[in-house]
Computed example of a mutant assay.
Amino acid sequence: MSKESRKKSSNPASYGAAPGNRVAAAAKKVAKKTASQTTTKSAKKTTAKTAMAKAATTKASVAKAAKPASGGAGLAEGAKAPAFKLPRDGGATVSLADFAGRKLVLFFYPKANTPGCTKEAIDFTRLSKDFAAAGTAVLGVSADSVKAQDNFRDKHDLAVPLISDETHGMLEAYGAWGEKSLYGRKFLGIIRSTVLIGADGRVAKVWRNVKVDGHADAVLAAARGL
């Protein structure tokens, strides 16, 4: 054997890596792969949690924006009446400021030309002169269009102004818009309500889930006593 051959055969590198080194290298590779997978899973979990947090924040913001700025179902007697400015039958505009220094009755009804709403509007019309004598103005409010209010007025010779609140802003502020139930089905709609506002611009009395029979007379009695 030549000197060159003996030198080559005595060099461990000529036989490749030792068995122990190969095992260590394989273990290191597996550990690196496992660490990479763990990091990826952790990143995905963090991304999912961030997305869920953003969704929850967005949902909360939308819910907050949907609530009326003032008034609502908790509209309390003694509280300042929420301001409004809306179109009425005939095309004119009506606002709370128009009645400053006077008592005002707002009766909220679900829909023009339906039996209960028709009777209620006729009852307030029948007593319109008595309300005027008591220094009290009366306004009817629903989500019907101005055209529908015009038809309602003409069909039943109504003598009280009828406000159109198609966006529900005033209805919500006065607590007259909320969840209702009919034949087991729940939905959002107008809750028949009446609010009496004093000459000082504050809520004097609130009636919720009104029963039409005798209601207008009861409101007149309250207005007279205010």
Rank of each mutant, 00 (worst) to 15 (best):
G101F: 09
V94N: 00
G201N: 10
R88Y: 00
N113D: 15
Y174P: 13
V206D: 14
P161A: 01
K45P: 00
G72F: 09
G140P: 06
R22N: 06
A81L: 08
S61W: 00
K111H: 09
A43Y: 03
K129M: 09
G16A: 13
R22A: 05
K103V: 11
G169L: 06
T57V: 06
P87T: 00
L127R: 10
K155Y: 07
K8R: 14
G175M: 04
A48I: 06
K28L: 07
E179K: 15
A65L: 03
Y15E: 12
L182V: 04
A31C: 01
P110V: 04
A53P: 00
A159T: 15
T125W: 13
T167F: 03
R22I: 11
L86M: 01
L171G: 11
T93V: 02
K29Y: 00
A24V: 09
E172M: 15
L188I: 02
A134V: 12
L158W: 08
K180C: 09
V30Y: 04
F99H: 09
N113H: 07
C117I: 02
T136K: 12
L104M: 10
K33Q: 05
A81K: 10
T118D: 08
A51H: 01
V30Q: 11
I163M: 02
A66G: 04
F152P: 07
K32T: 15
P161H: 03
D89N: 10
A69W: 00
G169Y: 08
S145R: 02
A63L: 07
K67R: 12
G175W: 05
I191F: 08
G135C: 08
S10N: 15
V23H: 03
F152G: 05
A121G: 03
V212C: 13
A63V: 05
A26I: 05
D89C: 03
G90V: 03
A26F: 07
G225P: 06
S70K: 10
T118E: 08
N11L: 07
D213I: 07
A51C: 00
V94Y: 00
T34S: 09
W207F: 11
K3M: 12
K119L: 04
A132F: 02
T39W: 09
A199G: 07
L106D: 09
